[in-house]
Design a protein around this nucleic acid. Sequence first.
DNA 1: TTAATTTTGGACTATTCGTTCCGTATTTCC
DNA 2: GGAAATACGGAACGAATAGTCCAAAATTAA
Lengths: 203, 203
Amino acid sequence: MSKTTTSKLATSKATEKPHCGPGRPRGFNEAKVLDAALHLFWRKGFEATSLDDLTAEMGLSRSSFYSAFGSKQGVLITALTSYSNAALAAFQELSESGDEDAVASMMSALADPNGGPRGCMLVNCITELAPHQEEVAEIGRRHLARIEELFASTICPNDPDTARNKARALSALAIGTLTLRKSGLPPDQISSALEAARGILTA
Amino acid sequence: MSKTTTSKLATSKATEKPHCGPGRPRGFNEAKVLDAALHLFWRKGFEATSLDDLTAEMGLSRSSFYSAFGSKQGVLITALTSYSNAALAAFQELSESGDEDAVASMMSALADPNGGPRGCMLVNCITELAPHQEEVAEIGRRHLARIEELFASTICPNDPDTARNKARALSALAIGTLTLRKSGLPPDQISSALEAARGILTA
DNA sequence: TTAATTTTGGACTATTCGTTCCGTATTTCC
DNA sequence: GGAAATACGGAACGAATAGTCCAAAATTAA
């Protein structure tokens, strides 16, 4: 009686890869499960997230998990890399918008005073893992360097030296703000402080 | 043959408590083992530090550890509290020095461009634990609020409103800088950016 | 000395950890 | 319809985890 149910798993939407070689096709969307993993790491931290948590949230069996990502650390690196790329792309778009208050938008995107879960996952990972996982540190360095670069090219395309310093300060400001928010400072106080500092720094 | 060695443990320096009530006296200095625990947590993070790591570093048996501190979380809270108090006292002294460049000293004390292990343990704890351990969040809030307060009273004792915003920005700046350093940015680049930002913000 | 009290070492427990493995299901290629 | 290849469910693994327990040791008060 168990044989009567014919599987429908493989015939899902399958927006990404329509299945190439031989063998049974995957029953999950890689981008989606990676996103689920990322948000779980964001909520709980890397060490505090267990394999049971992870596979439950991703909807994968342990076999599928390990065959696809190799290890707990592997799935973090993969998810973090694509998160960084996506975030940087969006950030670049803001910086190239030519908008008058592009810097303000960039600050908001980074510091996110209203505090959805999309603050900056990378800051968490750097703080928790960078000293002990070189791959995470590398991703973090790349990410922050690119942010600084985009800040610099936005605020002052002429004088590169002071622009660089101001850009670094803006980055540090936004990142530090994330910690303030995480400690419980109300959003409106975050906003006003950010606003004031940005006004002064970019004047 | 094992009985011949008479113990000398209890007759140590014992600078803190000369032993009051009845019963066997402790063989360890509470402040010292707390400091050891704090630095281990700082190096490895809370979740990544095991009881074996902890007791080894503190030089305690599990019995002594649990009878003195109750739990892994307990020793963190205790150590973190005294760390916060000591750091804030030193910070207050800087702010009350009347020195011309008191703000610069305060920034250095917080951001510590040369990066000894005494950066700011509290930022690590906030990032890793505040969302899930209310006690840690509370200590973090207290700590950051006090820092902001001292900044505000130092830079501009008159106009309290903009002083508050600038103080908040300086705090965020210093805290964000810690993350930059942790990601691998060289100390001299940290220093120059801090210097520039501070100059602008306090002008 | 003896009784009372506290600390200490380290064995122990029950659980959870990340990872591996195997039998079965599902697909493509011939 | 095979054969080959890949994915899946879930049991199993050894190591590691935070925390408990108890007998022995060390002290004070009588």
